[in-house]
Structures are given as C-alpha cells and as structure tokens.
Simulated assay, not measured.
Amino acid sequence: MQPFKTLTSKVAVLNRTNVDTDQIIPKQFLKRIERTGYGKYAFFDWRYLENGEENKEFELNNPRYKGANILLAGANFGCGSSREHAPWALADYGFKVIMAPSFADIFYQNCLKNGLLPIRVDEETMAILLKKASQSPYQCTVNLEKQQVSDEDGLRFSFNIDQHWKDMLLNGRDEISFTLLYEEKISNYEKMRKAQRS
C-alpha cells in the first residue's frame, strides 16, 4: 500500500444514508480473485441504466466530481455484509478518504486494513461540507499526521483515529507487512520451539 500523509483533492458527494456494501459493490461482481478492477463496478446499479449508459441522475456521475479522491457520504455508510470488496471497489474507483457522520463498524475496519482513511465528522461540520461541495467544485486537504481537515476558506477541524491504524496508514503497511516487521523474532521463536521438541 502507498503511505498516506496529506491529500488535497476535489470532494464528491453521495449524501445518502445507510448505503450498504451490496450497493457499493453488487454481488454479481464478487467472482474476481484480485483486489483490483472493482472500481468500474462500484455503485453499478445506481451508476448505469439498464441499457448500459451512465445514469445522469446519479450523484457521482456529475462531471464536477470527476477525479475526486474524497467522498462525503451519509450516516451508517458501509452497512450490510462484511465483504472487503467494498473498500477495494471504492479505492479502485479512486477514493482515498471517506467522510461521513458514522460508518458500519466492520466496514470502517476494512477501510483501514485496505489503505482507505474513513473520517467520522459531526453533523454540524458535515452540513457545512455538504453545502460547500454541493454548490460548486470544492476541494479540501486531509492531513493525517495532524489529524486535520482544512480548506482555503478557513474551515478547519480535527478527527480521531486509533494510533495503530494511523501509523499503519502513514507507513503504507497492511497487516501482512506489519507482521513481517517481526520476521526475525518469529523465526527465532520457531527455532527455539524446534530445539525444545528435539
């Protein structure tokens, strides 16, 4: 995974509550064995009409959101099943940060494990962000080291994140690469156990 430190990006808005993982990545696209390639299927049932054309009524198809790496979402984002494919699809779509009033617990953890930064935002601040991002092209900066979100108009607020996951994201580590930091100690332990059994 790539280290995450600071991101300045356009912000896209999907102001819907209770968006579940089946809506983020529908079940018919879960046959792939890779973690990549899911972006084109993200929000598939909302993004496309039955004839395969883009649904112009779907929020994320708005041209002003093209290339946005930050997503503003509604409360309880990522509810439903615990599939990791949902953060895979969002990351492959291009999102690096998701801000919402609340997240489903398993989805929140799956984001962190897969290099996405989920940020819980209080309702008052979210209302300000939604207004800014819905009226005109809007961008903000997310600084993970300072745990702060800011924009050019002076908006600034802090967010919480567990120190372990903060370190993991800052260093671009997943759970496997984190375990490998202790490879020598693990190897020494295995040698000791083998010697004890001999």
Rank of each mutant, 00 (worst) to 15 (best):
G80E: 08
L130F: 10
L169K: 05
V11E: 00
V142N: 00
R16T: 14
R35H: 08
A75I: 09
Q147I: 06
G80K: 03
D92A: 05
N114A: 08
I186G: 02
Q139I: 04
D153C: 05
K185M: 11
Q23K: 14
R16D: 08
A75M: 10
S150I: 08
F178Y: 12
L7N: 10
G78R: 07
E183A: 15
I70N: 00
P101R: 09
G172Q: 12
K146G: 01
T179A: 15
P26W: 10
D153V: 07
Y65V: 04
Q135G: 08
R156P: 00
D167M: 12
T21G: 01
L49R: 14
A195N: 11
L90M: 15
N188L: 13
N51C: 05
E123C: 04
G78L: 03
S102D: 07
T17E: 15
G172W: 09
G115Q: 07
A104I: 05
E145A: 13
L117Y: 05
F58Y: 03
F178I: 14
Q23I: 08
V149G: 04
T6V: 15
N171D: 12
S177N: 05
P63R: 12
L155K: 09
D174L: 06
V13F: 07
N62C: 12
L129H: 06
T141K: 12
E152H: 09
E53R: 14
Q148P: 06
R197E: 13
A100L: 01
V142F: 04
K113W: 03
R120L: 09
Q28N: 10
S136Y: 08
S158T: 12
S158Y: 06
G74F: 06
N55K: 06
D174G: 11
I128R: 00
M168W: 00
D92Q: 09
I161R: 07
R156W: 01
Y108N: 04
E175Q: 13
V13W: 04
E145K: 14
Q135R: 13
S9N: 10
P137C: 06
A75E: 11
K131G: 04
E53F: 02
F43G: 03
L169W: 01
Q109H: 14
I128G: 03
L7C: 07
D162R: 07
F44V: 04
R120I: 14
P87A: 03
T17S: 12
Y38C: 08
K185D: 14
E183K: 15
T179Y: 05
F58K: 07
N62D: 15
K31P: 00
Y38K: 00
Y38N: 03
D162T: 06
T17M: 06
E190D: 13
K132M: 12
S82P: 07
F29C: 03
N18C: 08
F157E: 09
D92G: 01
F178C: 12
W46T: 04
Y108G: 02
V13T: 07
P3V: 09
I161T: 02
L112F: 01
G172A: 09
D153P: 02
I128W: 01
E152N: 13
A104T: 00
